[in-house]
Simulated assay, not measured.
Amino acid sequence: MALTLGILLCDDHYPESQAVYGHYDEAFKRLFDNSAVSSFVTYRVFEDAFPASPSECDVWLVTGSKWGVYESDPWITQLIDFVQRCDQEGQALIGVCFGHQLIHLALGGKAAKSNKGWGMGLYPVRILDQGAFDTGAQQTTLNLIAVHQDQVLESAPDFDVLAGSDFCPIAITQKDSRVLTMQCHPEFTDAFLLQLIERLREKAGDEKVDEAAAIIRACGMGDRSIVIDRLFAFLDQQMVSREKRQA
Rank of each mutant, 00 (worst) to 15 (best):
Y24A: 13
Y24N: 11
D25Q: 09
E26P: 10
E26Q: 15
E26A: 15
E26W: 13
A27V: 08
A27G: 08
A27I: 02
F28K: 03
F28W: 07
K29E: 06
R30W: 01
R30N: 04
L31M: 00
F32P: 01
D33E: 15
N34D: 14
N34G: 11
S35K: 05
S35H: 07
S35F: 04
S35Q: 05
S35T: 10
A36Y: 15
A36I: 09
A36P: 15
A36T: 13
A36M: 15
A36R: 13
V37C: 05
V37F: 02
S38H: 14
F40P: 09
V41I: 12
V41S: 09
V41M: 14
V41H: 12
T42W: 14
Y43H: 13
R44C: 04
R44L: 09
V45Q: 06
V45E: 05
V45N: 03
V45R: 01
E47Q: 15
D48A: 02
D48C: 07
D48I: 06
D48K: 11
A49F: 11
F50P: 03
F50S: 02
P51I: 03
P51M: 00
P51Y: 00
A52Q: 05
A52M: 05
S53Y: 07
E56T: 05
C57I: 05
C57D: 08
C57E: 10
D58S: 15
V59T: 05
W60C: 06
W60L: 02
L61S: 05
L61D: 02
L61W: 05
V62H: 02
T63G: 06
T63D: 06
T63P: 07
G64D: 08
G64N: 07
S65T: 01
S65L: 00
K66E: 12
K66F: 14
G68Q: 12
G68K: 03
G68N: 12
V69M: 13
V69C: 08
Y70A: 00
Y70S: 12
E71L: 02
E71V: 04
E71C: 07
E71M: 11
S72G: 11
S72D: 11
D73Y: 09
D73C: 01
D73A: 10
D73P: 00
P74D: 09
I76G: 10
I76T: 01
I76Q: 00
I76V: 13
I76P: 08
I76N: 00
T77V: 13
Q78K: 07
Q78M: 11
Q78P: 00
L79A: 06
L79S: 05
L79I: 04
L79R: 04
L79D: 06
I80W: 07
I80G: 11
D81W: 03
F82R: 04
V83A: 07
Q84V: 12
R85C: 00
C86V: 10
D87G: 05
Q88F: 13
Q88T: 14
Q88Y: 11
E89M: 14
E89P: 08
G90K: 14
Q91N: 13
Q91Y: 14
Q91P: 07
A92F: 09
A92D: 01
A92M: 03
L93T: 02
I94G: 01
I94P: 06
G95L: 03
C97R: 05
F98E: 02
G99M: 03
